[in-house]
Design a protein around this nucleic acid. Sequence first.
DNA 1: GCCAACGTTGGC
DNA 2: GCCAACGTTGGC
Length: 178
Amino acid sequence: MARRNTTSLSADARAAPAAAEESVAAWILKTEPAECSLDDIRQAPGGVLRWDGIRNFQARNHLCRMREGDRCFIYHSGVREPAIVGQAAVVTESYPDPAQFDPVSPWHDARATPSKPRWFAVDLRYLRHFPEPLPLAAMRAEALLADLPLLRQGRLSVSPVSPAQLRVLEAMLGRERP
DNA sequence: GCCAACGTTGGC
DNA sequence: GCCAACGTTGGC
């Protein structure tokens, strides 16, 4: 079913992200390590930590599509050398983020109610630190990652990785091993 | 600490 | 519902 030179460009533009969403091979979770780091996940009781405080609609929509067992690359931002430092796995799919209902929480949202939550969290289990982090600069230098949402879109704290992009990331990570 | 990019808010 | 102003993120 060829769809080319259609005049309905805007409809195609809207359809494109939906098609991309169907092929998510992994996720990238961005965090400032001073706030929450991969080490914090590792050191959490049982190695399981709630990933909460997401207050961006697009990130939330991605978060809600995460499924038990999904792989997550943990990316540390706001440091001298921003990089993917390791992996975690989803152990509990999205549920309402309790912080939104807590008036003293920095993540409180007065517009949220338990019957109409606005924000969600997942639980992550620590998997591993990579022997060497994969720096942002290395990813930017890799043409095959040009479309990686992490690189294309600032401020997106939860973003998908396509199967092809996952293969590239794994190759780059494997290449680093001694 | 600066600044560009981008999401959110709020006036109209 | 548009769009300017504002706030925040995050790389450098």
